[in-house]
Computed example of a mutant assay.
Amino acid sequence: MGEDRRIYVHKSLGGGAVADVLLWKRRCGAVVLLVSATSLWFLFEKAGYNILSFTANVILLLVAILFFWAKSASLLNRPLPPIPDLEISEESILKAADILQVWTNQALSVARDISVGGNLKLFLKVVFGLWFISYIGSFFNFLTLLYIGVLLSMSVPVLYHKYQDQVDEKLMVAHKTIHTQYRKIDNNILQKIPMVRNKEKKAQ
């Protein structure tokens, strides 16, 4: 049973190379990702390097290397630089468009439920979520948040994979507690708001 659940964790992360990296099954790839993210964060956040200048310098260096490699190869009868055909497949574009469509429709559905349907509970959830994001953003900039996201993605899945039974037990207890408190708030506060009462009478 535990092994099946661990397999489910791997599948929930995509079941491919990305899942192997996040679960540290490919240690080399995980180390490269972690070191690369840390190096970039240090360059842009601590060393004060500009991301636009860094990108331009890297591209300039690559173009110069490829140019002189190709020239020397033609003079010395050496093979040309092995540059693959970098193309975005139509399948990848359609898949990305489908994902974007799902997210957009979900956002529009939430907006419609709030503005037209007058869903007070959903409105409070959205307000709290946006306030929480704004509160966290006041402490960190976007790059630091992105780096924290990389660190969490490299640590949380593997820890959950290792201690899944204990974590699920704690999450069930926390879920029951939050659900109980939410029902108390719902009964004591939300049900006393006139808009909620009117909607209930119309439904009846």
Rank of each mutant, 00 (worst) to 15 (best):
residue 165 D to T: 09
residue 42 F to N: 05
residue 151 L to W: 06
residue 137 G to C: 04
residue 124 L to I: 15
residue 50 N to W: 07
residue 141 N to S: 13
residue 79 P to T: 12
residue 169 E to A: 06
residue 92 S to Y: 08
residue 55 T to D: 06
residue 69 W to K: 04
residue 6 R to Y: 09
residue 139 F to P: 00
residue 103 W to Q: 15
residue 4 D to I: 12
residue 173 V to H: 05
residue 156 V to A: 02
residue 90 E to N: 12
residue 199 K to G: 10
residue 123 F to D: 05
residue 157 P to F: 11
residue 58 V to P: 02
residue 174 A to H: 00
residue 1 M to W: 05
residue 99 I to Y: 05
residue 189 I to G: 03
residue 103 W to R: 15
residue 86 L to C: 09
residue 55 T to F: 11
residue 62 L to K: 03
residue 180 T to I: 13
residue 179 H to M: 12
residue 190 L to Q: 00
residue 169 E to D: 02
residue 100 L to F: 03
residue 33 L to A: 10
residue 104 T to N: 08
residue 189 I to C: 08
residue 28 C to A: 12
residue 201 K to S: 12
residue 59 I to Q: 12
residue 132 F to E: 14
residue 7 I to C: 01
residue 128 F to C: 07
residue 164 Q to L: 07
residue 140 F to E: 03
residue 118 G to P: 04
residue 5 R to P: 00
residue 78 R to G: 01
residue 79 P to Q: 10
residue 156 V to G: 00
residue 17 A to P: 00
residue 143 L to E: 00
residue 157 P to G: 01
residue 88 I to M: 08
residue 179 H to L: 13
residue 151 L to N: 06
residue 44 F to E: 02
residue 79 P to N: 11
residue 137 G to F: 02
residue 151 L to C: 11
residue 112 R to S: 10
residue 131 W to F: 04
residue 60 L to I: 05
residue 186 D to H: 13
residue 122 L to N: 10
residue 135 Y to V: 13
residue 172 M to S: 12
residue 67 F to Y: 15
residue 70 A to V: 01
residue 8 Y to L: 15
residue 1 M to I: 10
residue 194 P to R: 06
residue 144 T to A: 02
residue 2 G to V: 14
residue 96 A to T: 03
residue 80 L to G: 04
residue 87 E to C: 07
residue 198 N to D: 14
residue 71 K to H: 08
residue 132 F to R: 07
residue 31 V to T: 03
residue 203 A to T: 11
residue 155 S to L: 13
residue 81 P to K: 11
residue 97 A to N: 09
residue 36 S to F: 15
residue 138 S to Q: 14
residue 140 F to I: 07
residue 48 G to M: 07
residue 170 K to Q: 04
residue 49 Y to S: 09
residue 73 A to I: 11
residue 191 Q to A: 09
residue 160 Y to A: 06
residue 15 G to T: 03
residue 97 A to L: 14
residue 146 L to Y: 09
residue 157 P to A: 05
residue 93 I to K: 15
residue 10 H to G: 03
residue 166 Q to S: 09
residue 168 D to E: 13
residue 77 N to D: 07
residue 39 S to Q: 10
residue 52 L to H: 03
residue 15 G to F: 00
residue 160 Y to P: 00
residue 154 M to V: 08
residue 151 L to G: 06
residue 95 K to V: 07
residue 124 L to N: 06
residue 111 A to Q: 07
residue 29 G to A: 05
residue 20 D to V: 01
residue 57 N to A: 15
residue 27 R to E: 11
residue 90 E to A: 08
residue 170 K to F: 07
residue 203 A to N: 10
residue 87 E to H: 11
residue 53 S to Y: 15
residue 178 I to S: 05
residue 185 I to N: 06
residue 163 Y to Q: 04
residue 74 S to V: 13
residue 13 L to Q: 02
residue 181 Q to T: 12
residue 6 R to F: 06
residue 41 W to M: 02
residue 34 L to F: 13
residue 180 T to L: 12
residue 36 S to I: 06
residue 28 C to S: 10
residue 26 R to Y: 01
residue 78 R to T: 01
residue 184 K to T: 09
residue 66 L to F: 14
residue 19 A to Q: 00
residue 81 P to L: 11
residue 192 K to T: 14
residue 19 A to M: 00
residue 71 K to N: 11
residue 73 A to C: 05
residue 45 E to H: 09
residue 14 G to N: 10
residue 184 K to G: 03
residue 37 A to L: 02
residue 111 A to N: 09
residue 79 P to C: 12
residue 174 A to L: 06
residue 172 M to L: 15
residue 104 T to E: 08
residue 20 D to Y: 02
residue 160 Y to R: 01
residue 15 G to Y: 04
residue 117 G to I: 06
residue 169 E to N: 02
